[in-house]
Amino acid sequence: MADPVKFFQEVRTETAKVVWPSRRETLITTAMVFVFAIIASVFFLLVDQVLRIAVTFILGVGQ
């Protein structure tokens, strides 16, 4: 088993190499996620409605 002290030194060294995003980058990325989630939800709502209308028309249900 490796030496725990050496392991934690290596962890610290690797952690120091991590480049964290700036606040601005984080906000922009978060906004993009929300926008694309809204676009996807509207798209699937429209597809669902079209399929519902098509199935209702084909099966003649609800008349």
Rank of each mutant, 00 (worst) to 15 (best):
A2I: 12
P4E: 13
P4C: 06
P4R: 09
V5E: 12
V5H: 06
V5C: 00
K6N: 12
F7T: 11
F7E: 12
F8I: 08
F8N: 14
F8Q: 15
Q9S: 11
E10H: 11
V11A: 14
V11K: 09
R12P: 00
T13A: 14
T13P: 00
T13L: 08
E14L: 15
E14R: 15
T15C: 13
T15I: 11
A16N: 06
K17Q: 13
K17M: 09
V18E: 10
V18M: 12
V18W: 05
V19W: 05
V19S: 04
V19Q: 15
V19C: 01
W20G: 00
P21M: 05
P21F: 05
P21E: 03
P21Q: 03
P21H: 03
S22P: 09
R23K: 14
R23T: 08
R23S: 09
R23E: 07
R24F: 07
R24A: 14
I28C: 01
I28H: 02
T29V: 00
T30N: 04
A31R: 03
A31Q: 03
A31P: 00
M32R: 04
V33G: 01
V33M: 04
F36A: 01
F36S: 06
F36L: 14
F36P: 00
A37I: 07
A37V: 05
I38G: 12
I38Q: 02
I39V: 11
I39W: 05
I39C: 06
I39Q: 02
A40M: 09
A40Q: 02
A40G: 09
S41P: 00
S41H: 02
V42N: 02
V42A: 15
V42W: 07
F43N: 03
F43I: 11
F44E: 02
L45A: 11
L46G: 11
V47S: 01
V47M: 06
D48S: 15
D48G: 14
Q49C: 01
V50Y: 12
V50C: 02
L51Q: 12
R52I: 06
R52S: 10
I53K: 07
I53D: 02
I53C: 00
A54S: 11
A54F: 14
V55Y: 07
V55F: 11
V55N: 05
T56M: 07
T56G: 09
T56R: 10
T56Q: 14
F57K: 10
F57R: 08
I58R: 09
L59I: 07
L59R: 12
L59N: 13
L59K: 12
L59T: 15
L59C: 08
G60S: 13
V61H: 05
V61E: 14
V61T: 09
V61M: 10
G62T: 04
Q63P: 07
